[in-house]
C-alpha cells in the first residue's frame, strides 16, 4: 500500500502520537497544546483529517497510528505550496505591491554584491 501523504506539521503531530500511542484524544489535545502550540480545535481537525487519509484511527476517543514512523520517513514529506494568496488581491493593488519574481540576472547580481562585501571589496 502506498504511504499516505503527510505534511510537515502533521509529521510533527505524528511524532507525539507515535511516542504515546494508544492515547486518549483529550490527552493528545493537551500534549499538542504544550508542544505544538495548537488550539484544541486544530488538534481535532488534524486527527479527523489524518484518519480520513488512513494515517491513524480514532476509536472511542482513543487514537492509534496506522503507519509506523519508518514508513512515514520513507515517504517524501510534502512541502505544500501555498497558492491561496495569489489572485486574492485586486490587480490594481497587486501592481503596487507586486515585485517581479527575482530574475536569474538579478539574483546573480545581488549574490555578487554580497560576495564582494564578504571579500571586503565593497
Amino acid at each position: 500500500m502506498k504511504t499516505p501523504k503527510i505534511f510537515e506539521s502533521e509529521y510533527r503531530f505524528c511524532l507525539i502520537l507515535w511516542e504515546h500511542e494508544p492515547i486518549k484524544s483529550s490527552e493528545l489535545v493537551a500534549l499538542c497544546r504544550n508542544q505544538l502550540g495548537w488550539k484544541p480545535t486544530t488538534t481535532y481537525t488534524v486527527i479527523k483529517r489524518l484518519s480520513e487519509r488512513g494515517v491513524l484511527k480514532n476509536e472511542n476517543t482513543v487514537v492509534t497510528a496506522l503507519i509506523t514512523k519508518e514508513e512515514a520517513q520513507a515517504a517524501e514529506i510534502d512541502e505544500m505550496v501555498e497558492k491561496t494568496f495569489e489572485g486574492s488581491l485586486p490587480a490594481f493593488i497587486a501592481a503596487f505591491t507586486k515585485h517581479q519574481k527575482i530574475s536569474e540576472e538579478e539574483l546573480d547580481a545581488v549574490q555578487a554584491m554580497i560576495d564582494r562585501y564578504r571579500r571586503g571589496e565593497n
Binding site: 505534511f7 510537515e8 506539521s9 510533527r12 508542544q35 502550540g37 495548537w38 486544530t42 510534502d78
Partner: peptide, 14 residues
C-alpha cells in the same frame, strides 16, 4: 492553524 511551535512566539508551518 497547524503551525508548529518552535519557541516563544515563533511558529513554523508548511
Amino acid at each position: 492553524a497547524t503551525a508548529v511551535l518552535l519557541r516563544d512566539n515563533i511558529y513554523q508551518s508548511e
